[in-house]
Simulated scan of single mutants.
Amino acid sequence: MEEQKENHPQAAPRETQHCRISDQETNGKNSTASSNDFSDPIYKEIAITNGCINRMTRDELRSKLAEFKLETRGVKDVLKKRLKNYYKKQKLMQKEPINGNSYYDYICVVDFEATCEEGNPPEFIHEIIEFPIVLLNTHTLEIEDTFQQYVKPEINPKLSNFCISLTGITQDIVDKADTFPQVLQNVIEWMRQRELGTKYSYSMLTDGSWDMSKFLNIQCRISCIKYPSFAKKWINIRKSYGNFYKVPRNQTKLTIMLEKLGMNYDGRPHSGLDDSKNIARIAIRMLQDGCELRVNERMHAGQLMTVSSSVPLEGAPAPQMPRYRN
Score class of each variant (00 low, 15 high):
246 K>P: 11
232 K>V: 12
195 E>H: 13
175 D>N: 11
190 W>C: 07
111 D>I: 02
230 F>W: 06
195 E>R: 04
159 L>M: 04
126 H>R: 05
213 S>M: 05
121 P>V: 02
161 N>V: 12
195 E>M: 14
245 Y>D: 08
200 Y>Q: 02
114 A>K: 05
172 D>S: 09
199 K>G: 03
218 I>E: 15
149 Q>I: 02
219 Q>H: 03
112 F>M: 07
113 E>I: 08
142 E>H: 12
199 K>W: 00
238 R>G: 12
164 I>S: 08
187 V>I: 11
142 E>Y: 07
160 S>E: 07
148 Q>V: 13
128 I>H: 05
243 N>Q: 13
167 T>P: 02
230 F>P: 03
172 D>I: 02
202 Y>A: 02
115 T>G: 02
112 F>W: 12
231 A>W: 08
129 I>R: 05
144 E>N: 11
153 P>L: 05
174 V>E: 02
123 E>F: 09
177 A>F: 13
195 E>S: 14
190 W>N: 03
182 Q>P: 05
161 N>W: 04
128 I>W: 08
165 S>P: 00
187 V>N: 00
111 D>K: 00
166 L>E: 10
162 F>E: 00
133 I>W: 04
188 I>M: 12
118 E>N: 03
164 I>V: 14
164 I>P: 00
220 C>A: 11
203 S>A: 13
227 Y>I: 12
179 T>V: 15
230 F>Y: 10
136 L>V: 07
144 E>F: 01
157 P>V: 14
207 D>Y: 02
131 F>I: 06
148 Q>A: 11
187 V>T: 08
115 T>I: 05
230 F>C: 12
134 V>E: 09
151 V>C: 03
136 L>S: 03
216 L>Y: 11
195 E>I: 02
152 K>R: 15
167 T>Y: 11
200 Y>I: 08
155 I>Q: 13
243 N>G: 15
206 T>W: 06
195 E>N: 06
193 Q>W: 04
143 I>H: 04
145 D>I: 08
242 G>C: 15
160 S>C: 10
158 K>Q: 15
158 K>V: 15
107 I>A: 06
180 F>Y: 11
219 Q>Y: 11
193 Q>N: 14
220 C>H: 05
233 K>F: 14
200 Y>N: 08
146 T>M: 06
